[in-house]
């Protein structure tokens, strides 16, 4: 409650500050261009991040553009469904999605240039995350690592990989874990994820819905989720009810960002849209990310928040054992792929 209040206070303060800066600068420089509106189509858990980041960016943009006002609109949902909406014509200036594959699928329709991942540093992923466990207080089932989740009777909450980006990272982490076990290969890994998904009572469409299922509706023994989402749940629902468990091994999740070329060229918003994404890499942007429990890329900011992010071994999606998103998607999540096979009745 207090947490929420202070957070709202901070957000309101930031908003007011940004508005004040914008109007103040506006008064001085009459030459400011017409107001710009950007639409950021994002995935589920970034709501709080961008609520804080948008006014910061607006203030910075106004400061360097003679007080020009930028309003950023937000749309959130499962990463896959959001990508689908952009493909179907949702006029996003920028997409900030859960994984590169979803941006690739928009690029495949010609809306984003195919080289998008090289246009910004760090694979166009300004912050990273990893997939960890949220358990009931005291960890009654002593769940420490992925192999504990396949034990009979354990109820695991994770969203549907067909619609949710976080869910696909969860799946990949489990798959990679199984591959690494002594004697691990595609067959044993398939058996492992099959056992894991057998333990899933509810498949929500997005990460946020899964958190609500686990925390609010109290279903399940463990929630596999984004590191940031787990910390946010603790913040919202109280540390008295949940514990965070860091498995010793997980996946390096790289949420990707890109300017939607077709849209910004039509709306003539390219400059602001590009600046919006670049500013995510600034110290201010990285700070907001870190405070929302996304792992910052900037070494200075990362050092400042080191205590917040325990070290664990994280495998990249481009590791030869996995082969990148295009391969993982085709093998596992396409129609008739491994995921369909293991969930078939």
């Amino acid at each position: 409650m207090t947490d929420q209040l202070t957070r709202r206070g901070i957000i309101a303060g930031l908003g007011l500050g940004a508005a004040g800066l914008a109007t103040g600068a506006f008064g001085q420089a009459a030459k400011a261009g017409p107001a710009v509106t950007l639409l950021n189509v994002s995935y589920d858990p970034t709501r709080e991040l961008y609520v804080q980041y948008n006014p910061l960016f607006a203030a910075n943009w106004a400061g360097s553009h003679g007080g020009q006002r930028v309003t950023v609109q937000q749309s959130h949902g499962g990463s896959g469904s959001q990508a689908r909406a952009v493909i179907d014509g949702l006029p996003a200036d920028v997409v900030t999605l859960a994984l590169a594959y979803d941006v690739d699928s928009i690029a495949a329709r010609g809306l984003i240039n195919r080289d998008w991942q090289k246009r910004l540093p760090n694979n166009s992923a300004p912050y990273t995350s990893t997939m960890i466990f949220l358990v009931r207080k005291g960890n009654p089932w002593k769940l420490k690592t992925w192999s504990d989740l396949v034990k009979p009777g354990i109820k695991v909450v994770t969203p549907n990989p067909k619609t949710s980006g976080g869910a696909r990272w969860n799946y990949v982490a489990a798959w990679a874990f199984a591959l690494r076990q002594p004697g691990g290969n595609a067959t044993t890994a398939e058996a492992f994820v099959k056992a894991l998904y057998k333990n899933v009572p509810v498949l929500d469409t997005g990460a946020r819905a899964s958190t609500t299922t686990f925390a609010q509706r109290r279903i399940g023994d463990v929630l596999i989720t984004w590191e940031n989402e787990a910390h946010l749940a603790i913040k919202e629902f109280g540390a008295a009810n949940f514990d965070i468990v860091y498995p010793p091994f997980s996946v390096l999740a790289e949420p990707s960002v890109a300017v939607v070329d077709k849209v910004v060229d039509r709306k003539k918003t390219r400059a602001a849209a590009e600046a919006y994404l670049q500013y995510l890499y600034s110290e201010a942007g990285q700070g907001v990310a870190a405070r929302n429990f996304y792992r910052p890329r900037n070494p200075t900011v990362a050092a400042r928040y080191r205590a917040q992010f325990p070290a664990l071994e994280m495998i990249s999606i481009d590791h030869p054992a996995l082969g990148g998103w295009a391969r993982v998607q085709a093998t596992h999540f396409a129609s008739g792929g491994v995921y369909d096979r293991i969930t078939a009745k």
């Binding site: 639409l39 189509v41 609109q73 937000q74 749309s75 959130h76 949902g77 909406a85 949702l90």
Partner: peptide, 12 residues
């Protein structure tokens, strides 16, 4: 029906 065609742009 609305959720499919809305795009869920907040405030819009």
């Amino acid at each position: 029906a609305v959720s499919v065609v809305s795009g869920k742009i907040r405030g819009l």
